[in-house]
Design a protein around this nucleic acid. Structure first.
Lengths: 346, 346
DNA sequence: TGTTAGCACTCTATTGCACTGAGTGCTAAA
DNA sequence: TTTAGCACTCAGTGCAATAGAGTGCTAACA
């Protein structure tokens, strides 16, 4: 692909990203000053179309980038864009706000991302680390109920309120807690099951009911927490994009957004990479999603990946901007999370 | 309002609910067999319009119920609808599924509700009960980090990981936990602040850092937990309704749904009532929402209201059906929650 | 006095049609 | 190789005619 073709392709992609209208040869000649006439550009465009980089919605319309065209643009033509002072400032200040829990930070991140890009943001939180039992605590809440709290070594805390016979008193529970803690310390599920159960039941047989429930909660902690949660932000925001004049388009889009599993898969799939990943149109398997692109990047906590941030928008999205925002944001998010999860909360 | 007028109004509301098209006099005469001619019905309709129960989109269109018309229908004309076997069965089976946590049940409820009604469901969880301190537990996770867990008497559990000096050992933390538990038992924030702080700091001065953080977490537990969370379901679902052919309508609707505070307010506002509440169109203050109605009802846990379930749909919604579903669902939800929060989780 | 048939009238929605303008591809000249 | 010129295509727009749904009113009827 010669130099001029690249320039023409770049012009088409940029213009289409900016206006959402098919781009004609005249427009390019005028706006992008390639020093040649529209006719020449038409010839180049005919070539580019043959090569599969651009398409024509109908005979009398201008050209539109194809998925392949976007891909070429993203890989070779696109200039890196730096964030403006204001954008950096906004991100920093939002993430610096004191936040009480992770959920809050996640939500704020999503909104921020959507606000900066005008597309829909997705934040996935992953918990993939296998965990071990760390601590159990039984707290008598009232004569008939006990709170069972289980702490895993990866910092997860599970709790549930259970019914207990009125005969229980605080010190019973304390003893029980102590024994369980001593016996189960640092074990994972496999180890717990075979060696210790009999021993435990023998020793604490009297409290069978509570023991059952406790073990069940521990089990949950060990097995079931590998769950991804996804947060979406700025759906309404994205509707200001010109492609969404049409009710059908909106419906398709909402249809995609309601398939949480699909989105989760989309985001967790990048898991290998460290940096920003870009998926364009039908590079994604799902058919519905052929007119959309996703820009995603993982975020870390103490060097370990704990989730992914992504932006979903039309294939026509402003990749340069989105990429820079996602990149900057994920880096700063890691810092912010560290502060919330560790420090004094501010 | 005489008997025949009621019949005409009923016919108009029913037909409009079913078809979403303005209803003409001929249609009523034919489909609803009132035994009079279209001309007579036209006279009645003119009266009903004058009385404010129906409206005409334009001169050559049929009539459409006004908010007042819907209100009259809901209050006086509507026949109670029983759920079908299948519907009841579906609700029962979905709620009977074993669920691991409340969030899961809430989500499932929302989806169920939306599926049954074809409108958007909203589930609000409220935590309005003032709580007292019940228990604090410090767990050493690794040489440098400690997990602080605070249990409130209403069953809320708060936790956070904090940094601790390496010199700490498990028994330090145990002592600390014990003292804090003994001193702070059953207090609310006001009491804690004045009497005990000095005493505590004197006694445990050596551990000032950890004490500060612990108290902060307790404080959060006491003050900040009055937070409502709302879950929305089946937004996409609702788009199958004929009013959403138009992109603008969809945007307005999504605009409403993105205002979480507004929705929360809408649902928490019914807090007084025990049963199903119906708000139609501009009976709701917010202007955007004038074409929508909300049917809501609270759900309970051990006799105390802990949240609200609602359905948001066009004013033209099938009230009879929605009301019966919401009613049945909230009643069963209470039972299901009880099982999850208490029992063995299934 | 209430009901009904008939009719003129209103207004929306649809259809067909001509026209405009953007944009192309091709050809021939520079 | 580039460019000017030209015929051609096709979506979009505006306009007029038409169809159809529904009304309100009047006068006749029971």
């Amino acid at each position: 692909m010669d130099d001029r073709k690249q320039k023409v392709l770049l012009a088409i992609v940029q213009d289409f990203i900016a206006t959402a209208e098919p781009v004609g040869s005249r427009t390019i000649a005028k706006k992008y000053r390639l020093g040649v006439s529209p006719a020449t550009i038409r010839n180049e465009m005919a070539d580019l179309e043959e090569m599969g980089y651009i398409e024509q919605p109908h005979t009398s319309a201008g050209r539109v980038p194809s998925v392949r065209g976007y891909r070429y643009y993203v890989d070779y033509l696109m200039k890196k864009r730096e964030l403006t002072r204001e954008e950096e400032e906004l991100i920093r200040s939002q993430l610096a706000k004191k936040a009480r829990d992770v959920g809050r930070v996640i939500k704020r991140t999503g909104n921020l991302l959507s606000q900066l890009t005008s597309y829909t943001s997705m934040v996935l939180t992953q918990q993939r680390r296998p965990s071990k039992f760390k601590h159990i605590q039984l707290v008598l809440m009232n004569p008939a109920q006990t709170m069972v709290i289980v702490v895993m070594d990866n910092g997860a805390v599970h709790h549930r309120l259970i019914e207990t016979p009125e005969s229980f008193i605080s010190s019973d529970l304390e003893t029980l807690s102590k024994v369980l803690n001593a016996k189960l310390q640092g074990l994972n599920m496999n180890t717990i099951r075979f060696t210790l159960l009999k021993e435990l039941y023998f020793e604490l047989g009297r409290h069978k009911h509570i023991l059952d429930l406790s073990l069940e909660i521990i089990q949950e902690g060990l097995f079931l927490e590998e769950e991804d949660k996804i947060y979406l932000g700025g759906v309404f925001n994205m509707l200001t994009q010109p492609e969404f004049q049409n009710a059908e388009k909106i419906k398709t889009m909402l249809g995609i957004l309601e398939q949480e599993e699909l989105l989760c898969e989309l985001l967790s799939d990048d898991s290998l990479d460290k940096g920003v990943t870009i998926k364009i149109g039908d590079e994604i398997k799902d058919h519905d999603i052929k007119d959309y692109s996703v820009v995603a990047a993982p975020y870390m906590l103490s060097g370990r990946k704990i989730g992914t941030v992504g932006v979903l928008g039309p294939t026509r999205m402003d990749y340069a901007k989105v990429i820079s925002v996602v990149d900057f944001l994920t880096k700063n998010l890691s810092v912010a999370l560290d502060r919330v999860l560790r420090g004094g909360g501010r």
